[in-house]
Simulated assay, not measured.
Amino acid sequence: MTAALGLGAVVGILLGLLGGGGSIIAVPALVYGAGLPLSVAVPTSLLVVGASSATALLPRLRAGQVRWRIAAIIGVAGIPAAFVGAAVNRMLDPRIVLIGFAALMTVAAIRMLRGNTDTGGDCALPGGGVHWRGCLPKSIGTGIAAGFLTGLFGVGGGFLLIPALVLLLGLAMPAAVGTSLVIIVVNSAAGFAAHAGDAALDYRVAAAFTLTAILGSLAAGHFASRLPAQRLSRWFAYLVLTIAAAVAIQAANS
């Protein structure tokens, strides 16, 4: 229970600061820290990440850092994909799922470190508008990919949404964080519904994890706007690489 409390706070802090990354910590933490089987850790992670993301979103709403139409398109596109991802998850060995999770995190982190973080694109034109002919297919594709991964790996998708929103759709980092949190809430709810009934949840662990995650997200969200966006982006990438290595080692040795 102590591990759940501490790790829950870390999840919330990451969501509050970065608009993602919490689910990367949540699944390994619940499996290796709290001792839950993967079948229980996945829906528990989605419950925790969804609740803490909704809380972390509050200061972003006040700052006007959400691109609502883009969030709606990506979120809706991801709902059916989450159910497909959950179906695939049930057919795979848990070790394969975790190793795939680590590989995907590595690709996302390297793309963030190598990619050009200058903003601007179809979804964020210099004049502030949106070129929907280019933005719409990119948004739908991003939603399908994030939704599928939510169902497959039990994550909210923020660790991929942030690179996609910044590098592919061209949003500035503050808008990417706020928009990502909205999408994570939608994806987490869809993923949780897709995994409902897979295994009985440990509600004591889930409640402890969720409570500290919410408190952590509120505290971090208060300070996030004072930190440089480019530095946050690099921190995020290094964190993803570190957790990917740890997950791969644990999965290979289990």
Rank of each mutant, 00 (worst) to 15 (best):
L5N: 01
L5G: 00
G6A: 12
A9R: 04
V11H: 06
I13K: 02
L18Q: 04
G21A: 10
S23Y: 13
I24H: 01
I24V: 15
I25S: 11
A26G: 04
P28N: 10
P28M: 09
A29L: 08
G33H: 12
A34Q: 08
P37K: 11
S39Q: 13
V40D: 00
V40Y: 01
V42E: 02
L46N: 10
S53R: 07
A56V: 07
P59M: 12
R60V: 00
R62I: 04
A63D: 11
Q65H: 15
R67F: 01
A71N: 04
A71W: 10
G75N: 05
V76W: 09
G78F: 09
A82V: 09
G85T: 09
A86R: 06
N89A: 14
M91T: 14
D93L: 02
L98D: 03
L104W: 14
L104H: 03
T106W: 05
I110H: 03
I110Q: 03
M112Q: 13
M112S: 01
R114N: 03
N116G: 03
N116F: 07
T119D: 07
G120M: 13
G121W: 12
G121P: 07
D122A: 14
G128M: 13
H131F: 13
K138L: 15
G147D: 05
F148V: 06
T150P: 05
L152F: 14
F153I: 07
G156M: 12
F159S: 05
L161N: 12
P163C: 11
A164M: 15
V166K: 04
L168S: 10
G170M: 14
A175S: 12
A176S: 13
V177H: 04
G178S: 11
T179I: 12
I184N: 05
N187A: 08
N187P: 01
S188W: 14
A190N: 05
G191I: 01
H195K: 04
A196D: 05
A196K: 08
G197T: 07
G197S: 04
Y203V: 10
A206N: 03
A208G: 15
T210Q: 07
A219C: 07
A220F: 06
A220D: 02
G221Y: 11
H222C: 01
H222E: 11
H222M: 13
A224Y: 07
A224E: 01
S225I: 09
S225E: 10
L227I: 15
Q230D: 05
R234F: 03
R234Y: 08
Y238H: 13
L239A: 01
L239G: 12
A244D: 02
A245N: 04
A245D: 02
A246G: 03
V247E: 04
A248E: 04
I249H: 04
N253I: 14
